[in-house]
Amino acid sequence: MPRFITTHTAGRIGYLTFNRPEKLNAMNNQLLDEFSAEIAALGANPDISVIVISGNGRAFSVGFDVDPGNGGSDAASGLESYLDWESLRRNIQRWLAVWDTPKPVVSAIEGYCMGGATMLAVCTDITVVGEDAVIGWPAIPLGGGLLSPTTAWLIGPKKAKELSFIAGSRMSGAEAAALGWANYAVPAGTALKRAEALAQQIAKMPLDLLRLKKMALNRHMDQRGFREAILQGAEWDAVAHTAQGTHTMTQKIKELGLKGAIGWFHSEENA
């Protein structure tokens, strides 16, 4: 079975790469489980001071894989409410594990960063994006309260509401950096190179001090409610999955397929 996460090290830098390029690194259960195992291993490696996360191919990741035929994640499997909440919370905890990793994590984003992948990016410590990267929300409304409250911590509630209220919202990499979602926007194709340069500088800091610095900043954010706000996303999304509007969209997907449902939602018929 092919692996969907690859890792390697160079000096005191650990590299984790999404490696499902034919599916734009969509996150199915196998990929998610491999991710959790590998981020934990890199976090526990005393020879590694900083971790860089990137995606192979045309996308960082298009988020959770909603196609059961692709070994899709539990994100769209129509679970009973409690099990739905439990599944959503489990995946949020994967991202909080990055937040809690005892060393800095840098995300290098090229191409698409969509849906659940945006939550991962927020939970990394530093983000570098290609100027033409696409940071986006689902093209049709299937949930609520999961992505935008997380994003609001970086870009503020007004912009987060705009992105949440309009299906298929997008930010370019340049916009994301201007709004504070990313640290840097760089020419397309150079995000990983810039992330590596930052990681090399970070790796010069003694690891015990890096841990303390990250813990101090994260503790401040957690005291302001960051962790609870992200975890509450599972509750809001599970509730949203029971709403009539969500049922209408899932029925359209059954009738028309995903692409057809997207076309219907954005057509004059749905005006």
Rank of each mutant, 00 (worst) to 15 (best):
residue 219 R to E: 12
residue 163 L to I: 11
residue 237 D to C: 09
residue 124 T to Y: 04
residue 231 L to R: 02
residue 207 L to R: 13
residue 22 E to K: 12
residue 227 R to E: 11
residue 100 D to W: 00
residue 98 V to K: 02
residue 40 A to C: 04
residue 207 L to A: 15
residue 185 A to Y: 03
residue 63 G to R: 06
residue 210 L to W: 07
residue 115 G to D: 05
residue 74 D to W: 01
residue 84 D to Q: 11
residue 92 I to F: 10
residue 238 A to N: 04
residue 20 R to Q: 09
residue 45 N to D: 15
residue 47 D to K: 11
residue 250 T to F: 08
residue 111 G to I: 06
residue 121 A to E: 05
residue 250 T to Y: 11
residue 149 P to R: 01
residue 73 S to C: 05
residue 130 G to W: 02
residue 79 L to G: 07
residue 212 L to Q: 15
residue 69 G to F: 01
residue 218 N to A: 12
residue 119 M to E: 14
residue 236 W to F: 15
residue 101 T to N: 08
residue 35 F to G: 11
residue 85 W to T: 01
residue 82 Y to E: 12
residue 119 M to V: 14
residue 225 G to C: 00
residue 237 D to E: 13
residue 212 L to W: 03
residue 158 K to Y: 07
residue 253 I to C: 02
residue 92 I to V: 11
residue 60 F to D: 03
residue 260 G to A: 10
residue 87 S to W: 07
residue 66 V to L: 13
residue 102 P to S: 06
residue 18 F to M: 06
residue 72 G to I: 06
residue 67 D to L: 10
residue 216 A to Q: 12
residue 79 L to N: 08
residue 185 A to M: 00
residue 190 T to I: 00
residue 122 V to I: 14
residue 202 I to F: 08
residue 207 L to I: 09
residue 40 A to M: 06
residue 22 E to L: 12
residue 141 P to C: 00
residue 62 V to I: 15
residue 225 G to M: 02
residue 212 L to G: 13
residue 209 L to D: 15
residue 12 R to N: 09
residue 192 L to N: 01
residue 231 L to D: 10
residue 107 S to I: 05
residue 22 E to D: 15
residue 101 T to R: 00
residue 269 E to L: 10
residue 10 A to I: 03
residue 76 A to E: 10
residue 37 A to F: 03
residue 217 L to A: 15
residue 21 P to L: 06
residue 72 G to A: 07
residue 58 R to F: 08
residue 10 A to Y: 02
residue 51 I to T: 09
residue 64 F to T: 00
residue 73 S to T: 01
residue 251 Q to R: 15
residue 156 G to E: 02
residue 125 D to E: 10
residue 175 E to G: 03
residue 179 L to Y: 09
residue 262 I to R: 05
residue 31 L to K: 02
residue 223 Q to A: 13
residue 25 N to F: 03
residue 235 E to Q: 12
residue 70 N to F: 01
residue 200 Q to R: 15
residue 192 L to I: 06
residue 145 G to E: 07
residue 25 N to L: 07
residue 260 G to N: 06
residue 148 S to F: 02
residue 41 A to F: 01
residue 204 K to S: 08
residue 236 W to P: 01
residue 95 W to Q: 04
residue 37 A to Q: 14
residue 172 S to C: 04
residue 59 A to I: 04
residue 244 Q to V: 11
residue 160 A to L: 05
residue 140 I to N: 04
residue 87 S to P: 00
residue 221 M to N: 11
residue 10 A to G: 08
